[in-house]
Every structure is written in structure tokens, then in C-alpha cells.
């Protein structure tokens, strides 16, 4: 082989994707102010090497074309049915750096309607924080200007479920603002 680069087209490594073998453990949040913020959570894939490669190419090499790889899986995701999708947003500073909103783009490519209800309050990267610090950090999201939360069922969409901090913070904001239920769908269970 040469250093022509790892397969440029992720569809080829799609064969290496495996379904997530466990669902996000929401119970971890019992006893915190965020207990019950999320009513359900589903992840589509496990975080194996093929998925890491693909996600790295999508997020860090900014290969927007790869958003389409997940369109079919998102179409078939039961949890999206009957709920309004809300993508977990990026901070505006990050967005300019990354050049496209990586979660939103997944929905755009899949042709799934969504409501951009939330705004990120900090450009801080959660990945740098320890587990305790993540769980206890200040609110990460607020309602976007002019956003209206109805008494309806919402599903937050994000790429990774790690500790669940991001999603619990986001769900908390929606619940406080009147959402009847908030579920979460992530591509990957890390």
C-alpha cells in the first residue's frame, strides 16, 4: 500500500460499523439535579475503530460529505418518530472553526426536519474535564432567541454519548421550558 491515505470514502468502512451493544445508562444521574431530565436514550453504534476513523474524518478533517453516510440509519431510528428533533448545538466560535454544524448537518442530509431550540453558552470543551467536573459544571445551554418550547415530545440529537452531561444539560433546559418529554438519540455510545 501507499500513503495515499485511509479510504477517502467512509462508506467503505461502513462495513466495520457495529450496533451499540448497550444503551446509555441514565441511572448514573439519579440523585443529581438532572435526574429524570432525559426520559429515554438510544445510541445507534458502538465506538469501534471503524467508527472512530469515520468520526475523526467527519469532525476533525471536516469532511462534510460523510454526513450522508448516516442518513439511512437516522431514517430508520424509531425514536425520531413522533418527536421533534433538536440538534445539540455548537458554540458560535466553534462553529466558525469547524465550518459546519456537525450534528445539524446529519439531519439536513437525512432530510429530517428539526427545531434549533438551543444555544451553547460556553466554548469550553467538555472533553478536557474530568467526570465529576463534567457532571457539576454550570449550565451549558440556554434557549435560543425566540425559541418556543411547546408541551410536546422532543428528541435531542448528538454524535456521542460519553458521560451524558451534554444531553442532560440540554434536556434540563427543554424540560424547564415546558417540554412534555425529552429523549436522546446519539450516533455513538462511547
Amino acid at each position: 500500500m501507499t500513503d495515499r491515505g485511509k479510504s477517502l470514502l467512509c462508506p467503505r468502512c461502513e462495513g466495520g460499523f457495529v450496533p451499540a451493544d448497550s444503551m446509555p445508562p441514565l441511572g448514573d444521574w439519579n440523585g443529581t439535579p438532572y435526574e429524570g431530565a432525559l426520559d429515554a436514550a438510544v445510541s445507534l453504534y458502538a465506538y469501534n475503530d471503524a467508527m472512530k476513523t469515520c468520526l475523526r474524518q467527519y469532525k476533525f478533517l471536516k469532511d462534510a460529505a460523510l454526513a450522508a453516510v448516516f442518513s439511512d440509519a437516522l431514517h430508520h431510528a424509531e425514536i425520531l418518530k413522533g418527536r421533534t428533533a433538536v440538534p445539540v448545538p455548537m458554540h458560535p466560535v466553534r462553529l466558525v472553526e469547524r465550518t459546519f454544524p456537525q450534528v445539524e448537518e446529519l439531519l439536513v442530509q437525512a432530510g429530517i426536519p428539526y427545531a434549533p431550540l438551543l444555544e451553547k453558552t460556553t466554548a469550553l470543551n467538555l472533553g478536557r474535564l474530568g467526570r465529576k467536573e463534567r457532571m457539576a459544571s454550570d449550565p451549558l445551554f440556554r434557549l435560543a432567541d425566540g425559541a418556543e418550547v411547546r408541551r410536546a415530545d422532543y428528541v435531542l440529537v448528538d454524535d456521542l454519548y460519553t458521560t451524558g452531561t451534554t444531553l442532560h444539560h440540554a434536556a434540563h433546559v427543554l424540560k424547564k421550558s415546558g417540554a412534555r418529554s425529552v429523549a436522546a438519540l446519539t450516533l455513538i455510545r462511547a
Binding site: G5, L8, A64, L95, R98, E105
Partner: peptide, 17 residues
């Protein structure tokens, strides 16, 4: 793609990505 850096539809090269 719809580029948020330049605010336009922007092309990029996947060949030397």
C-alpha cells in the same frame, strides 16, 4: 457545503483531505 466560515456555498477537496 454550506460554509459557516465564509457564509457561502463552499467547495473543498476530498482527494488530499
Amino acid at each position: 457545503f454550506n460554509c459557516r466560515k465564509c457564509g457561502k456555498v463552499c467547495r473543498y477537496c476530498r482527494h488530499c483531505l
